[in-house]
Amino acid sequence: MRAIGFLDEIPPGEGRTFAVDGEMVAVFRLRDGSVRATQAVCPHKGGPLADGQIDLKQVVCPLHLNAWDLSTGCSLSGQPDVAVYPVRIDDNKILLGE
């Protein structure tokens, strides 16, 4: 588990991309206060998932509006699934990994 950034870098209901060991991870701050992390690059055609719109369940890629379940990474519109990572908040720090 490691700290990759701070919660207040992400406005409520939005996502931001963080670099972790040469990998890119999109972290989303849900409006219920919890966070989710997925791979940053859309498996469809490489769109930036962190720029997508979210709710408590899904993220919608801004390029072609495909959607993925934020908790499981399962595609909701017939695309390949995305990787999801365990993530939590500890005192404003974003902690990624088990």
């Binding site: 870098e9 690059v41 930036p48 962190a50």
Partner: peptide, 9 residues
């Protein structure tokens, strides 16, 4: 915060 931060660094 990060309004213009890149999403694909």
């Amino acid at each position: 915060p990060g309004q213009f931060r890149t999403s694909l660094p």
